[in-house]
């Protein structure tokens, strides 16, 4: 389990490089990229934030905040499951909240007993936090050195990063349908609305999950990643 937590941390560190480079390509400076990783610390939201800033600049800041915040809503669901498991109060609860992310949740809930879950949560959360922040810094320096992001395909790297973040969530037919609707709505709205707004509007595709999933062997969507 220790090894599982640490290896998840190392794997996530690799995302950090891409995030740092993309953040700088989007127009953030090195310290702003690092601030996002230190303070926001939830990868999908950070990618969304810099992706929308890259497209629309400061004028689309409100959309960037909205998209990042909606992507972060799932962390509240993770927290609901983790609270009884972790049994912490006071400052340690604040630390646990900050470390509540996809990876720490996934390792914690797949352990056999409570002590292993707690250890798994903290080891994974802390190792991801340390490596994510270090590699963001490295990635931002790399991005700074590269210059025009298009030459090395950094704009395309953002597309690849989003599809890679989406991929593991497409485990049921319902989630594929929601992804298709979200993608089509955002594309159709792009010519008429300012950058970022189509993404925020497309989030409404998630409302398709309101009704009970069909009983056809599909996994319910919204199951943990």
């Amino acid at each position: 389990m220790l090894r599982q937590g640490l290896s998840v941390g190392v794997a996530t560190g690799a995302y950090g490089i891409s995030f740092g480079a993309l953040a700088v390509a989007a127009g953030l400076d090195v310290w702003q990229a690092c601030a996002l990783s230190l303070l926001m610390f939830t990868g999908g939201s950070q990618f969304a934030f810099v992706g929308i800033i890259a497209a629309g600049g400061l004028a689309s800041a409100a959309s960037a905040i909205a998209a990042a915040s909606m992507l972060g809503l799932r962390n509240a669901l993770y927290a609901l499951e983790l609270t009884p498991l972790l049994g912490v109060r006071g400052p340690r609860r604040v630390a646990a909240a900050h470390l509540t992310i996809d990876e720490s949740m996934a390792v914690a809930v797949t352990q056999d007993d409570v002590p292993a879950s707690r250890l798994g949560f903290w080891v994974t959360g802390i190792s991801v936090f340390v490596l994510w922040n270090l590699t963001t810094f490295v990635g931002a320096l790399v991005g700074n050195a590269i210059g025009d992001p298009r030459t090395y395909g950094l704009d395309a790297a953002a597309c690849a990063a989003f599809i890679a973040l989406l991929w593991p969530r497409l485990r049921s037919r319902d989630s594929v349908a929601i992804a298709v609707v979200g993608g089509v709505v955002a594309t159709l709205l792009t010519p008429t609305l300012p950058p970022g707004i189509p993404v925020v509007v497309a989030a409404a595709a998630a409302l398709l999950a309101w009704r009970e999933p069909r009983v056809n062997g599909d996994e319910p969507i919204g199951a943990r990643s």
Partner: peptide
């Protein structure tokens, strides 16, 4: 379910 589906819709968008 809707909160859980939100990342799917947003990431696809």
């Amino acid at each position: 379910r809707v909160m859980g589906a939100m990342p799917v819709a947003l990431l696809a968008a």
